[in-house]
């Protein structure tokens, strides 16, 4: 591969990178709401998987992607309630609850999928109308005349589905909710110092429940994106560790909404490059194992956590159940 080929590959990986980043954005924002309120959420992966399954099933039965999305969101929010019940009401270990959710989602989607459709955990192929299909924007030919913008317009702005646009909308909305509303201020406060919030007469329990419900809501979009926008069916284990990459992106973004977007785009892009680089050799370097690209998000996150790229301070009360003084 020549240098020009390599540069072209880097460029052509951008649209794919954006597509791969969408579920990460939704999921990392979900984690943001939960973790800023002091509830660790390892169960992002499971919520994404379960909502992907629910979305595919309902979209198949009803033929409507929006109903599918609704089912995905509902499923994910129900799981959030379970996580809340375990870690807020019962003050159980949040990590263990997340691990349990991941196990149950992984098992139940496969068991139910096999029992209902008998295709080895797959759901039936969806018709085009039952999916979120890409939007073709007007004036592609006209825009092609402009050198760089035309390419961006054709491959990145146009040709995406509704959920992609919603993902980019979700970032400023999340920022606004967390930093410009009373609810957001309280949510962030409860993740830092729940006792102070409690003293102010605000229910820590209710706040945290609302925060995990927000997380469930956003995770539902991520799951639906996987099964009824990116592909046309649910496939067993289709979340494939994306929940954990989103978690890494959340930490890499130091628990802040706008950097979350950047981190997710970066990790999505790395994934996209890795797919295209498979089996090709780089100019001057030779063949680079794709596993390096797969591991890179995690390595970067560890390096960041070690304090080599600025300081990442997690919410202070994260992972600790709140016990009211008696």
């Amino acid at each position: 591969m020549t240098l020009t080929d390599f540069l072209l590959l880097l460029r052509d990986s951008i649209p794919g990178g954006v597509r791969l980043a969408i579920p990460l954005i939704f999921t990392a924002l979900a984690g943001l709401f939960s973790e800023r309120s002091g509830i660790f959420d390892i169960g992002l992966e499971g919520k994404m998987l379960a909502s992907a399954f629910a979305a595919a099933c309902v979209a198949f039965v009803s033929g409507s992607p929006w109903l599918g999305l609704g089912a995905g969101i509902l499923t994910s929010m129900l799981i959030s309630l379970l996580h809340g019940f375990a870690s807020i009401t019962n003050r159980g270990n949040q990590i263990v609850s997340g691990v349990a959710i991941n196990f149950m989602a992984s098992g139940l989607t496969a068991v139910l999928g096999q029992a209902w459709f008998g295709q080895g955990g797959r759901t039936p192929q969806l018709a085009n109308e039952a999916r979120f299909e890409p939007w073709e924007w007007p004036g592609l030919e006209a825009m092609d005349q402009i050198p760089v913008l035309g390419w961006i317009y054709r491959f990145i702005i146009s040709g995406q589905n509704s959920l992609t646009y919603l993902a980019f909308l979700a970032v400023p909305i999340s920022w606004w909710v967390l930093y410009r509303t009373r609810f957001g201020l309280r949510l962030r406060a409860v993740g830092e110092n729940p006792a102070a919030v409690d003293t102010a007469g605000i229910s820590v329990t209710f706040l945290r429940y609302r925060a995990v419900l927000c997380a469930g809501f956003l995770c539902g979009f991520a799951g639906a994106y996987l099964s009824i926008a990116q592909s046309a069916a649910f496939i067993k284990e289709m979340s494939a560790g994306k929940g954990y990459i989103a978690l890494a992106a959340l930490i890499f973004a130091k628990w802040k909404p706008v950097p979350v977007l950047g981190a997710c785009l970066l990790f999505g892009y790395l994934d996209s490059v890795a797919i295209r680089l498979q089996g090709k050799s780089l100019p001057g370097v030779g063949e680079v194992p794709v596993q390096i690209f797969q591991a890179l998000p995690y390595i970067l996150t560890v390096v960041l956590l070690a304090g080599f790229i600025g300081v990442a301070n997690p919410p202070k009360a994260g992972g600790v159940a709140y016990t009211k003084e008696r």
């Binding site: 375990a86 691990v99 991941n102 149950m104 992984s106 955990g121």
Partner: peptide, 16 residues
């Protein structure tokens, strides 16, 4: 995969 479900439930009830 039913084993995974049972494991998940045991982790949930015995753990979390």
């Amino acid at each position: 995969d039913m084993i995974v479900v049972i494991q998940g439930l045991v982790i949930l009830f015995a753990g979390a």
